[in-house]
């Protein structure tokens, strides 16, 4: 896959959608192209976050380790971005991402990513939007879960 194709793929990622083509090219060029065989891990929960990944091809599972064992919280495919939270907030990886099919990805290093954010404030805005959406999703899920849990708790009392 060539630079031009990568740029087209990046364009599909919401937070890069508004960026000028030249900048996307630069981002693609300065990022590493990496490939994973199915079953290989892009990064582990608890690792230091040093890069974000844009999936160019293939599918990967996002797994979280819980006391009950590993739990799949999402599946990502082409044009998805993973791992950006850890590099934004300087926290350890919150999940493990594992390839389920052969995966090709673009690895954007933390340094380059942060530099991009500084150079293009509109990207930051886009990220805030994505994060906020995720937060509201999570909140919704949580309240639903909570409601469900209360419900079942009530049931068991009665």
């Amino acid at each position: 896959m060539l630079l031009n194709d990568e740029v087209k793929m990046l364009r599909q990622v919401p937070i890069f959608a508004g960026m000028a083509a030249a900048k996307l090219r630069l981002l693609a060029y300065t990022s590493d192209r990496v490939a994973y065989r199915s079953g290989e891990v892009l990064f582990h929960q608890g690792d230091d976050g040093d890069a974000a990944y844009v999936i160019l091809q293939g599918q990967a599972d996002v797994m979280v380790t819980t006391p009950q064992g590993e739990l799949r919280v999402a599946q990502v495919a082409e044009n998805a971005m993973v791992g950006e939270i850890a590099i934004l907030c300087d926290v350890a990886r919150t999940a493990t991402v594992r390839a389920v099919t052969p995966v090709e990805a673009l690895r954007i290093s933390k340094e380059n990513f942060v530099k991009l954010l500084m150079d293009f404030p509109e990207m930051t805005l886009e990220i805030v939007r994505v994060l906020a959406a995720r937060l509201s999703d999570t909140t919704a899920t949580l309240s639903a879960e909570l409601a469900a849990a209360r419900h079942s708790a009530n049931h068991s009392i009665h």
Binding site: A22, R25, Y29
Partner: peptide, 12 residues
């Protein structure tokens, strides 16, 4: 095309 517009000290 990729680099010409960057300031000379840019990490890229």
């Amino acid at each position: 095309g990729l680099f010409a517009d960057l300031p000379p000290d840019h990490p890229f």
